[in-house]
Amino acid sequence: MQPAGMYSRDRCVTGVHGLDEILRGGIPYGSTVLAAGTCGSGKTTLGMEFLVRGANAGEACAHFTATEPSVKLLENIRQFAFFDMKMVDTGLINVFDMDVLYSWLGLEKSTFDLDDVHSLIKSIVDIVNTIGVTRLVIDSVTTLCYKIKSEQLIRDFLFTLGKKLATLGCTTILIAEITSATENAHWSSFGVEEAICDGIIVLGDIERMGHLLRFLQVVKMRGTSHSRAKHAIELTPLGVMLTPMLKWGAISDNVNRWGS
């Protein structure tokens, strides 16, 4: 029998170079992780790689895209050396356009009420359940939540969705767009996502002598110990590559200059 202190949750091995080491083995299964990042920080690429790596391992994956058309998204992931279009053809990678989903559900409106939110949750959960999705990415939850006007409703939406997906054993990455990734910044647009999610991965840029260096930092991950250090990112055809950021170079020039 395993001693109580030795218990560790099963992991969803992301397959992203370096990320599993940071997470000491991967994301605990069924977690809902917020990947919050500034524009151009590599959120979408990270999300897509997470799915493609899963599909490579034979897992069914789903991607809901609200920020760019799926056609473009699929074009972009072709650059991954480990991506094969067969993954889409055989149903391992399922990309859904949110605007098509909204249209099918009759949700082509600017604001969602409680009923709309519940029908959206039901549809996503239906899809996950029916095709046995174990990896899910919603890109972005910020765009989606803009349609939900009440903070309470956003909280309900994320909490209910996260709970239902966890029950189905689906590990989810919710991509969030933020305007700043500095120490004092919020890691979500609505202030509630960060509290509800099991994990937060922040992606941003550090300015070093006029150049932007992408970084990734795991701020929180329930159910696992993990590194909280900033890691530099390079986006390559082999996927996202990570290395610990130099300690003497991990502070943005602006922060040094202005102390903010």
Binding site: R208, L213, A232, E234, T236, M241, T243, G249
Partner: peptide, 12 residues
């Protein structure tokens, strides 16, 4: 100055 990028690009 993008030292980490150099390292990652080399690894790639």
């Amino acid at each position: 100055i993008m030292l980490e990028s150099i390292l990652l690009r080399t690894l790639y």
